[in-house]
């Protein structure tokens, strides 16, 4: 994996990007400390396809990458408002 296709900037060198972590569902603000600790620290950390937050550092553009962690290949990159990742982000919005 040397080139990442940024939804905003097109194909760019991997060194221009930073990994921000797995896409997880945030708990509601009034959730207990155990739920929050779980959200902050625990990882699914799968060996296989996973959706992750990445940032293009030069333009400060945050987006979602689908990646296979066994083969080091990118399966797709998505804008945050892409309907294909909408189900993943559903839990992110507080009521």
């Amino acid at each position: 994996m040397k080139i990442l296709h940024c939804p905003l900037n097109g194909p760019r060198n991997i060194s221009e990007f930073a990994y921000l972590g797995e896409v997880k569902s945030a708990p509601f603000p009034d959730a207990g400390t155990v739920e929050w600790a779980d959200f902050v620290f625990m990882e699914r950390n799968p060996a296989g396809p996973v959706h992750e937050w990445w940032i293009h550092l030069a333009t400060n553009y945050v987006f979602i990458v689908e990646r296979d962690t066994r083969s080091d290949t990118v399966l797709g990159t998505y804008r945050v408002d892409d309907p294909r990742v909408a189900p993943l982000l559903a839990g992110q919005v507080a009521p």
């Binding site: 779980d38 620290f41 625990m42 990882e43 699914r44 950390n45 060996a47 962690t69």
Partner: peptide, 18 residues
């Protein structure tokens, strides 16, 4: 290197990135 995978088999998660 396989801690999260084995823990997953046992039924719990770990605060680990591989």
């Amino acid at each position: 290197g396989s801690s999260s995978r084995l823990a997953d088999m046992a039924g719990f998660r770990l605060p680990i990135r591989t």
